[in-house]
Amino acid sequence: MFEGRLLQGSLLKKVLEAIKDLVTDTNFDCSETGIALQAMDSSHVALVSLLLKDTGFDHFRCDRNLALGINLQNMSKMLKCAGNDDIITLKAEDEGDTITFMFESPNQDKISDFEMKLMDIDSEHLGIPDTDYQAIVTMPSAEFQRIVRDLSSIGDTAVIGVTKEGISFSTGGDIGKANIVCRQNTNVDKEEDQTTVEIHEPVSLTFALRYLNSFTKATALSPQVTLSLSKELPIVVEYKIEKMGFLRFYLAPKIEE
């Protein structure tokens, strides 16, 4: 059987909120090292990759590898019934067709069990090679969210450029143009307010703002976001999940016609 008890249940709620509108159905791959998920959106333009390591759980047991086929909208409905401070336990039998979510209130005076039907999903996995990206930028996640939202009101696509000076976001549309530059900034008091640029070669790529906007639903998971770019490769937008792993989004760039 599989069982995982997560003291900070709100993490799982936040993960679902971040991905449920991008991906409909996906397998949660459970193994003794944790829970992993990889899924593309229906147009195969964006991909979600989640890792929740066993060590981040208060209790974790997985007797044999399981692929739990889950409709994310339905799981989101179930998790919305958990309080933000609740402890969440996931349970599934090896041969079962359901998953159980148990919610415990912080002082243990309310215990709820929600049982959700699983589904069979033939998932296509993409092999994502380890890449030395040409540019890696880490910046405040709220700042990234703000920029992407602001630019979305002006254009449909953004050119993201990285030089050793910083990272720039540009767009244009019927009403005009916009260009935002965030400079490397390591002299701020709080580490989470820093913007750091690690660069081997300047890079500039164009992406659909609609998807970038969708990724920023993960902002609540981490104060910082890391953007990894290389010429002619999908961008990686990564939110680290403290002590547990990460939620990564990959987005294919616009290509020359």
């Binding site: 996995h125 092999g127 164009t206 490769l233 999908p234 294919a252 760039p253 616009k254």
Partner: peptide, 14 residues
């Protein structure tokens, strides 16, 4: 602006 790329042109399906 260019056409929207697809992930399966960059990564192989396994």
């Amino acid at each position: 602006k260019g056409a929207q790329g697809r992930l399966d042109t960059f990564f192989k399906i396994t």
